[in-house]
Write a protein that binds this DNA or RNA. Structure first.
Lengths: 190, 190
DNA sequence: CGCAAGCTAGACGCGCGTGTCAGTTCCGGA
DNA sequence: TCCGGAACTGACACGCGCGTCTAGCTTGCG
């Protein structure tokens, strides 16, 4: 119901009706409306948190590239598995109330930190381009988020594998081919 | 108030207090709460719509690259000019109600179509890489959106010019340097 | 057969925030 | 100075949805 109607529009009556349960029963299991919502989000975070696997450049069995794609695949897969919950994460949970926002923030920063460290490691190994890793993190997460948003919220039909491939391509090569790189920060190593 | 507290949390009493106006006066100028919100969003869209300028490859005075950066700069600048309104666009307006969502959708698709056409044009000119332009559009908008989200919603301190530069860099080169391009669609032209 | 635990149905009070409206103030022209 | 309309005010009624509660039903088990 939260996914379908949004947090505020989802009435308790609708929730219990959908669950085939009486109003009173609901309150035996959840403190209040907020509580059930919070539980949904907490569980989603827990599941999502397990999708990340740190890239190991020493791993002989799979290249860094493969490991990165593996990660993207796992994340995309987890989020597309339960689309209703993903909808909730992507839109209902945002801006609900300050306490909740902090919860989202904390998770987001956790993910951000992990990704940023990975980028920094990658730079040392030469598998990540020069530049502000914080920025890369933001832009990468944004691209990923929007992709999932379009698929989940707007029903963009797209093979999971295609999504993974295109995201990887975008991260690898960008999309523009205008190589008069003026941006101020010219290619540092030449 | 909408930016500060969110649509639902912003009470009419708070709005009129902030405007130094009585409750009744408010209702002389706006049908209801929704109406004032809609007006804010409509105006923002109108302003934002004017920031886009189609890239002209024939233009002798500025390169395609410059024109693209010019566009990014204009958009970023417009959105950072009035941060409160940008907050509203980025978070409050989403998922409010079906009718409103359609409005956002329409604008988003407008922008998306424009960008996608530009990418397609760019591919013919060789200034945009091969690949699904729809996907590029989504990923690009997502990256841009997230960047602005971080700056506006979370107060990420960052020079406007730096933001523009980093976004352009990201679009141009991506961030990964793992050139064993396996993604399935191997580099088509070799 | 009876008891306990879990559930149902739904009535109800309560708080809250919206939108209204009768009344007041302001102001410009005669 | 006075009048009339326009602008504004703020107390109030109303609706709505949450969370509670009671009386009664079902099920499982000794």
């Amino acid at each position: 119901m939260f996914a379908k109607r949004g947090y505020h529009a989802a009435k308790i009556d609708e929730i219990v009706a959908a669950a085939n349960v009486a109003r009173g029963t609901f309150y035996l299991y959840f403190e209040d409306k907020r509580a059930i919502f919070e539980e949904i989000v907490d569980r989603a975070f827990a599941r999502l948190g397990m999708s990340f696997v740190r890239v190991d450049p020493e791993d002989a069995t799979r290249t860094v590239s493969e490991q990165i794609q593996e990660n993207i695949r796992r994340i995309v897969s987890t989020l597309l598995e339960d689309r209703a919950t993903t909808k909730i994460l992507l839109s209902d949970a945002v801006g609900l109330d300050p306490a909740f926002d902090r919860k989202l923030l904390v998770f987001y920063e956790e993910v951000g930190r992990l990704l940023e460290e990975s980028f920094a490691d990658g730079q040392k190994l030469g598998v990540v381009s020069e530049g502000d890793t914080k920025m890369m993190t933001i832009l990468t997460l944004g691209a990923l988020k929007e992709m999932l948003y379009q698929v989940v919220m707007r029903g963009l039909a797209m093979e999971e594998e295609t999504i993974v491939a295109e995201i990887f391509r975008f991260l690898s090569k960008g999309c523009l081919r205008v190589n008069d790189g003026p941006v101020g920060s010219v290619t540092r190593s030449a």
